[in-house]
């Protein structure tokens, strides 16, 4: 009985119920939404956000935030695309290394600024958000890298499938999610991220190297943003200095916060984030089907963030109340 209750009270269950209700509601209005074809459309909307969200989750759990991921994505994608353009002889799969490496470097800079000068990450990454975007314009000479320069094999990753008609990039996103799950719950360092976020003051006392962990989560976030950069090139077939990654940080933060990751650090699960990403994907896919104009989209994202914050708060308060009740009983 207690086990059932604890499942029902879990955040993930709440999101899963929300997804089911939403899908049913849209399905009643537009039965086509329930088709396999729409499942494919929804899934194809999510891989980039999913990958960015895994990094952002770790950053938020460590009680930081990374606003620069959209620009990191753009810069990494641009470096990679320009490599394809000017050195077509380089094998396309090396692009992954380049993109991830560049992203890792930018993430490391964020982490270094945050730890070295003990600055709030939100301001640091607000600064690098502009800095990296500007650098993207500079290295590209403000020019888009067109479709013809992106290797066909890379573009094919978004269309061809190893199994069940599900494209490669979706499997990659799932792979990243599984790796993050393994890292977060089955490694010592992963658990230290949670320990650091739930109580930064006590972390050094427990032998946690705060600076190293902070550097690491920002580097991971950057590397994953870099990975999402080359996947952008794969999915959309071009890289543009101003479009690529614009607003990516908002989508990702919305997904992560919906997924139950607490902005106060220390709390979050991969499953919750995956569900959060899926919910966002369902909403994005349903809007055009229902004929809701795109202009409403940003208001919906904003409202979703605030609602998620309120839910997060009420969950936390209930937790505190439960704790207090337990203590009173004891």
């Amino acid at each position: 009985m207690n086990a059932l209750r604890s499942i029902l009270l879990r955040r993930e269950t709440g999101i899963a119920v929300m997804i089911v209700l939403f899908v049913i509601a849209v399905g009643i209005a537009k039965p086509r939404f329930l088709s396999l074809e729409y499942l494919r459309i929804i899934l194809l909307l999510t891989p980039l956000i999913m990958i960015g969200a895994m990094g952002q989750m770790l950053v938020l759990v460590a009680r930081h935030v990374d606003l620069s991921i959209g620009s990191t994505q753009a810069f990494a994608a641009m470096v990679t695309a320009m490599m394809f353009k000017f050195h077509p002889e380089i094998p396309w799969y090396l692009g992954f290394l380049v993109s991830i490496g560049v992203g890792l470097g930018l993430g490391f800079v964020n982490g270094a600024l945050t730890t070295l000068f003990r600055l709030p990450s939100i301001i640091v990454t607000l600064g690098t958000l502009n800095l990296y975007r500007g650098l993207t314009f500079i290295i590209s000479d403000a020019r888009q890298v067109d479709r013809q320069y992106i290797p066909s094999a890379l573009k094919a990753m978004s269309t061809t499938s190893p199994i069940l008609g599900i494209p490669w990039i979706i499997f990659m996103a799932l792979g990243v999610a599984l790796l993050t799950y393994w890292f977060a719950s089955h490694t010592r360092v992963g658990r230290q991220v949670f320990a650091l976020g739930s109580n930064p003051a006590a972390a050094p006392l427990r032998g946690i190297r705060v600076n190293a962990i902070t550097l690491m989560v920002f580097s991971i976030s950057g590397a994953l943003a870099g990975l999402s950069g080359i996947m952008y090139a794969s999915r959309w077939g071009f890289v543009n200095p101003s479009n690529t990654g614009a607003g990516f940080e908002f989508q990702v933060i919305a997904a992560v916060v919906i997924g139950g990751v607490s902005i106060n650090g220390g709390v979050g699960s991969v499953l919750g984030v995956v569900l959060g990403v899926l919910l966002l994907g369902c909403v994005s896919a349903a809007l055009p089907l229902l004929g809701i104009p795109g202009t409403a989209q940003s208001a919906i994202y904003g409202a979703v963030i605030i609602v998620a914050l309120l839910i997060d708060r009420s969950v936390r308060q209930r937790g505190i109340a439960a704790l207090a009740a337990q203590r009173a009983r004891a």
């Binding site: 479009n243 896919a285 795109g294």
Partner: peptide, 21 residues
């Protein structure tokens, strides 16, 4: 008549909705 707001992501989603609608 649908509107993709001149964004590749949105335009793609709208196009997919067109084909299935």
């Amino acid at each position: 008549t649908v509107y993709g707001d001149d964004q590749p992501e949105k335009s793609t989603t709208e196009m997919e909705a067109l084909l299935s609608n």
